[in-house]
Design a protein around this nucleic acid. Sequence first.
DNA 1: CGAAATAAAGACAAAGAAATCCTTTTTATT
DNA 2: AATAAAAAGGATTTCTTTGTCTTTATTTCG
Lengths: 141, 141
Amino acid sequence: MLSHKARYAIRAVLYMAAEGDESKHFSVDRLAETLELPRAFLAKALQELARKGFISSLKGPNGGFYLTRVQRRRTFKELIVAIDGESLFEGCMLGLPECDTSQPCPIHASVAVMRQSLEYQFGLHTIEALAQTLRHSSMRI
Amino acid sequence: MLSHKARYAIRAVLYMAAEGDESKHFSVDRLAETLELPRAFLAKALQELARKGFISSLKGPNGGFYLTRVQRRRTFKELIVAIDGESLFEGCMLGLPECDTSQPCPIHASVAVMRQSLEYQFGLHTIEALAQTLRHSSMRI
DNA sequence: CGAAATAAAGACAAAGAAATCCTTTTTATT
DNA sequence: AATAAAAAGGATTTCTTTGTCTTTATTTCG
Ligand code: FES
Ligand code: FES
């Protein structure tokens, strides 16, 4: 469903969005320790997100990763797609070269219904919205 | 979403369910050629399904794979779980050790909604039902 | 019985994902 | 300027998935 890279990155991003702001930065070391994730692998994932503009980073002492206000307005779906690509939201689930209603595979209709739900759930919720529910209710992360 | 093994197996199973019966058997060679799938890898997947009782097999001339009437009553969800395990339907999508409503992760609610849809779509449809839509409408497989 | 057709099983190879390690670059602080 | 704290980048290892190849077992048919 989600790659490990995506899971790790999402957890770190939501954690930073919930706990930090533009002036509070998080080092990979701290994130990896807090969330109990493989340090170097998480670093790669976050660097990739920084390169793609989904998060910001600063080098040097007191540096680290953080999210700007603008970056918090990206949807959760955009975040997933940035790491894992569109396969969750597009393409035939049986691997046929095309996925459309004109020549669908036997599960296309079911997949379409499920994807509408996905689209609705992940396409409307921004990172900030998820961070807010995280802040206001003692959820795990 | 689905592993290649699952995709290949599902396509072969639905094809056999739609085109064959208890006395019409399909060799791996023929299935692989018809569906344009890697022969040996498909063989492994089908043998696994046969071991688990989801399909039947006969050795020797005129042997091959096929589905009994009882086997056609298994749901599509059961088929997926047999190959890929429950990860699509259970467990925290962010990788947290537990997935429950008491201490959920930030996307648990969204995931639950999506899974209800999955459950409804894949948990109610039997293999036979999908095969029938395949028979009666010129879908691809 | 002998030959041919088939699934079953096992060993192996290639590719990709996950994870680690080391070096370089940037920047703040002293 | 020197030092230390961080991200960035690259090389390498390990594990899993995907895929191939070869051999064995079973069954049918002449
Ligand atoms: S054609 Fe297979 S999911 Fe759309
Ligand atoms: S707790 Fe994460 S999906 Fe349920």
